[in-house]
Design a protein around this nucleic acid. Sequence first.
DNA 1: ACTGCGACTGTGTGCGCACACAAATATACA
DNA 2: TGTATATTTGTGTGCGCACACAGTCGCAGT
Lengths: 356, 356
Amino acid sequence: MNSIPQKIKIKDIAEKAGVSAGTVDRVLHNRGNVSDETRRKIQSILDEINYRPNHYASALASKKVFVFCAVIPNCEPGGYWELIEKGLLRAEQELYDFKVVVKVHYFDQYSPTSFAEAMDVVLKQDSAPDGVLLAPLYKPKTLVYAKKMEDLEIPYVFIDSCMEEGNPLAFYGQDSFRSGYLGAKLLFSQRSDVTKIAIFSFFDPGQTPSNQIALRMEGFKSYVEKNNRSCKVLRGTLSANNPEENEAMMKKLFEENPDIKGAAIFSSRAYVVAEFLQKYKLSNVTMIGYDLLEKNVMYLKNNIISYLIAQRPEEQAYKGIKAFSDNFIFKKEVQQINYMPIDILTQENIEFYLEF
Amino acid sequence: MNSIPQKIKIKDIAEKAGVSAGTVDRVLHNRGNVSDETRRKIQSILDEINYRPNHYASALASKKVFVFCAVIPNCEPGGYWELIEKGLLRAEQELYDFKVVVKVHYFDQYSPTSFAEAMDVVLKQDSAPDGVLLAPLYKPKTLVYAKKMEDLEIPYVFIDSCMEEGNPLAFYGQDSFRSGYLGAKLLFSQRSDVTKIAIFSFFDPGQTPSNQIALRMEGFKSYVEKNNRSCKVLRGTLSANNPEENEAMMKKLFEENPDIKGAAIFSSRAYVVAEFLQKYKLSNVTMIGYDLLEKNVMYLKNNIISYLIAQRPEEQAYKGIKAFSDNFIFKKEVQQINYMPIDILTQENIEFYLEF
DNA sequence: ACTGCGACTGTGTGCGCACACAAATATACA
DNA sequence: TGTATATTTGTGTGCGCACACAGTCGCAGT
């Protein structure tokens, strides 16, 4: 009654083929040293009986230690990349008994050079990692290292945003264009009288916008083009480390344009703008933002931000590492392109997203 | 460099305590037959060195087969409960090597008696299941069996909706009240001129509404009360198996009330109403619905339904079974109340939710 | 015919643990 | 003091697999 479908093991196959377990093991792992004849015989049995190895027993017996490196921007407390790191750690924990180690390497998210340095360290270790997880913030540099890893035959996983030119083992992230598009839709669906909006970005001097943010902005504009062509879109440029300047800039912008009805910002730091809106009591401005940072959530709850669009960063990182283990340990097919859901968060449903 | 933190095993503990592995095993599993003195010694070592057993090795060595039963309504193809079943199967697959079997038992979702019969079968097997997963559609009957299972010391998991009176090992589902509340918010946020809406339900004669649907409706009404008190709410009652009658009813309703601007339905069969709206080209009616059924998705894409609110049924079922394995096999603490995210789906983000 | 060598195949051990069983020790009672 | 019995402890085997190692075999070269 409570019996389990009898599991087929290596020994069974060996018996069926009239060989020893060792030989079956050799064909299973392509270790060579098997005559064509016996290999074919074993293979045909394998094909017909649907052998499914016990990966837990396998991991137990194996001595192999897997080292996966993650290369991500420095994690400010409460910032976006901290969520990514959380996912990495969760995956490492879960794979502990499979002898999986996740090493995190950090770089300065505003410096492509710093990214390159981190990658150099990762790839020039005495023993190469079994896989590298990274966020392709800056296309050109990333491309260089993608090439390098392909030459070294080190599989890599992209999170956050993708690059068509690369050929990762897997990608986990949002369709950034679409999430920008959705942002615009939500902004305009809120009210029918939106004729002027402001969008903000952190373009520091001499820096190219990150891949993802550029795409979100395109998506946003595309929606406006298509559905609210008459709406005026103003741009505000924020500085990463000069709050006073930012405040002055916004003050000027909103004073000169009191008819601004909507605001959007495509990085995760919506709270910078929200803080301003709250301080100056501009409750007539509808705002949308991105990512589930604590401070963003606070302004959502305070009704300063109407909608937050989220992308499950922790899950991206978690699944990124799991892609490696699925590939190496569980021998599962790994789907290459994996768009994460574009979650729409409001005051009413936010609380149910906080622990995920 | 690539070394893993040295794993502590039973043998290590045994050595430290000056006993054999068997004795350590006895205290780890409370198997008794250990003198107070040695148990205390071992326990103190255990406390101080943070021993984490290898559950994979443990499962490998163990002969125990786990049988978990799921009691759910019949799965119509393309219906809600099919998604649940998918999650159950996924969990079973994943736990295959842990000797976990998931047996699904079905009942007629419109008949509490049929539910009771299914539960009787489950509980009166020659060997009792190690856990039961069920959806408490009908409170009173569920309560009876919850009691029974507590007496039999069989842990149970609720999915879909919860019952405060029960004491399940875990619950995975939506906050139904809140999802109804959010539905109303979305309906009204779409346009400012909504003064009359219609809500539909499948109250067949002689039947009590399921727990979840009743709560959603309450939540919906609560929002209207609070924010749009002047809006008139009409009720339409649908029949589960009489399309002609339904059509006639809706026709009459919308003809007599041409000023209906919004429609909502709290079961997963929004497509019944959507089909009508499409057929009669009532494009002026904004509609919201629940759950990611194929047919609902189609009407969302066609712009008949503006928002769908989803609750990840597959994940509910999957996590429900995993709660058992976490409890029995991985000895993890299982959180009792787990509200699933209330996903808001629109044309723009729907495609990213379809494979989850 | 002997050796050496390469291609192929079988055997044995251990991964960390559960559990049946054997062994040792303690306790009771005559 | 001896025997029977309960209590406590140690040992051995196997779960399914990986992998090191030890064979076996055929064949070329001397």
